[in-house]
Write a protein that binds this DNA or RNA. Structure first.
Ligand SMILES: [Mn+2]
Ligand SMILES: [Mn+2]
Ligand SMILES: [Zn+2]
Ligand SMILES: [Zn+2]
Lengths: 140, 140
DNA sequence: ATGTTTATTGATAATGCTTTTCATTAAGGC
DNA sequence: GCCTTAATGAAAAGCATTATCAATAAACAT
C-alpha cells in the first residue's frame, strides 16, 4: 500500500516494482535480478536485495522462506488481509488461499494450551499442473 | 521410530542422539555441536550435520526453518506421525499439536487447483503462560 | 540552469550456514 | 586378528545474503 520505501524515487526501484508486477509468482532476489537484466533494466543485485527488503518491511509484498532456506518474494493481488499460499516448488506458480477454518483452528489450539498473542505460518507446496505434466512426459 | 540411519552404529551418532534427548527445544546444528562439546563428546561438525540430515530423512526428528533461514532440529515426543508445533516465541517452549483437519484441508485446496505431490508447513507462535505472566508483571 | 547536500547505488569483499572432498579411521562379519 | 567398506572430520568449496565505501544522482536551494 504505502510506497514509503525511502525518500527518493529512483529508476531502479521502479524497475524492481515493474518486475514484481510482471511475474506474479514467488521469486528469489536473484531470479528477479535476472528478470530485470532480460528486461534491459540494469539494476545491481545489492539494490534488488535492498528494495525487496524495504518493500517487505512496508508490507507491500509477501516474503516466505522455501525449503532450501531461501527467501522468495511476491507482489500479492489483494495485499490487504491475511492469507496463505499454494506454491509450485518447481516454477513458483502461486495461488492465494484464504482459510477461516485454519485461523479458527490455530487460535483454538493455542488458547487451549494457554498461549496468547498468537500468530502462525502456513504454506502449501506442490507441483502445479504444468510442471507435473512436464515431469511425467520426461519419463516416457 | 526406525533407527535405520545407516548400517553401522557409532559413538558419534549415539552422542548426537543423546544431545537431542537432553535439550527438547528446537536447536541449530551448530548449537547442538556446542552442546556436544560441552558434554565432552567431540563430534565433528560435518558429522552433526550428516546425522541430523539422516535423522530427519528417517523421520526420527523434526526440522523447521527459522526466520533467518537456518534449519533447527528437535527430537519429538511421539515421533510417529506428522504433526505441528505451538512454539513460545520468547522461551521456545513447544507443544506438539496434531490436526487431521489441517491435513485434509491442505490436500483438498491443493487438489482443487490441480497441484500434486503436496507438502505443507505450519507452525503456531505465541507467548506461553509463563512468559505471558512475566510480561504483565513487568508492567506493574 | 547551476550548485549543494546526502540518499542511493553497485562492484567488491566479507559473513555464515551448509555441502563436498578425500584421506584416515573403525564397525561388523569372517 | 583380518578384511571390507561405511563413517568420520579437517579443510575447501558453494551459495545466499549482508557490509563496505567510493561514485552517482535525486531533491532542493540559489
Ligand atoms: Mn500472498
Ligand atoms: Mn514435533
Ligand atoms: Zn510449476
Ligand atoms: Zn515462553
Amino acid at each position: 500500500m504505502s510506497a514509503k520505501i525511502g525518500q527518493r524515487s529512483t529508476k531502479q526501484r521502479a524497475a524492481v516494482a515493474a518486475a514484481l508486477a510482471e511475474v506474479d509468482d514467488f521469486r528469489s532476489a536473484q531470479d528477479l535480478h535476472d528478470v530485470l537484466r532480460r528486461r534491459g533494466d540494469l539494476v545491481g543485485l545489492t539494490t534488488v536485495y535492498r528494495t525487496l527488503q524495504a518493500l517487505t518491511d512496508s508490507g507491500d509484498i509477501d516474503v516466505l522462506i522455501n525449503s532450501d532456506g531461501e527467501s522468495i518474494y511476491r507482489h500479492c493481488g489483494q495485499s490487504a488481509g491475511h492469507h496463505h499460499h499454494l506454491v509450485c516448488r518447481k516454477c513458483g506458480r502461486t495461488v492465494e488461499v484464504e482459510g477461516k477454518a485454519i485461523e479458527r483452528w490455530t487460535d483454538a489450539i493455542a488458547h487451549e494450551h494457554g498461549y496468547s498473542d498468537i500468530t502462525h505460518t502456513m504454506e502449501i507446496f506442490g507441483l502445479c499442473p504444468a510442471c507435473a505434466r512436464e515431469s511425467t512426459e520426461a519419463m516416457s
